[in-house]
Simulated assay, not measured.
Amino acid sequence: MAELLPLLRDRRSIRAYDETHVLADDELAVLLEAARWSPSAGNSQPWAFLVGRRGDEAHRAFVELLAPSVRRWAPAASALVFTLNQVASGPEDDALGYSDYAQYDLGQAVAHLTVQAGALGLGVHQFAAFDHDGLAELAAVPRHWRVTTGLAVGLAVESELAERTRRPLSELAFAARFGTPVAL
């Protein structure tokens, strides 16, 4: 039987970051490149990112928008990255529904960024507990884009890693009918 890549098997959603780690320019660039090269419907690449590195003005402003539950751990990450997906062709287009797959495509881009972070020895924690409208206003996000999620990126404090659990495949993968397990 083929083995799951350790990079995927060992991934964690980090809540304790090394506050001395600095995300280098080349590391940030390769993370964003990993997202950029992700597949998308019609090669539309309907995603964008807002990036703040710990200590810079963007990071300080982003921290103010975090919910208290996230503010307890995310500011220590080397970078806060916020994701956006395109919802219309342009700001004058009131018809939402630019692509039925834009959020899916964004999810793939974030997954690629997350795997690349793991290859660099970094951890990523995705979150949604922040002021989405406040971030859109702060960053002057155009009307045809939607603020979606946040990512904390940095070097994990190993002693803080919790045991990882997953639901069994029998609850996730089905044959021709929902609830009918796939024969493996």
Rank of each mutant, 00 (worst) to 15 (best):
M1C: 09
R12D: 04
I14V: 15
Y17T: 05
V22P: 08
L23Y: 04
L28Y: 09
L31V: 09
L32N: 05
N43W: 12
W47H: 05
V51Y: 07
E57H: 06
E57P: 00
A58L: 08
A61S: 15
V63P: 05
L66K: 13
V70K: 07
R72Y: 01
R72N: 05
R72A: 14
A74D: 08
P75T: 04
A76D: 12
A79V: 01
V81D: 10
N85V: 02
N85K: 05
Q86H: 00
A88Q: 04
P91C: 10
E92R: 14
G97I: 02
Y98Q: 02
S99M: 01
Y104D: 12
L106A: 04
G107E: 12
L113N: 11
Q116V: 01
G118N: 09
G121W: 07
V124W: 05
V124A: 05
F127C: 09
F130A: 04
F130H: 07
D131G: 05
D131T: 02
H132Y: 10
D133W: 06
L135M: 05
A136C: 08
L138Q: 11
P142I: 02
R146D: 03
R146Q: 13
V147L: 05
T149L: 15
G150P: 11
V153S: 08
G154Y: 04
S159Q: 13
L161R: 15
E163N: 01
E163G: 09
E163A: 15
R166K: 14
E171N: 09
G179I: 10
L184W: 14
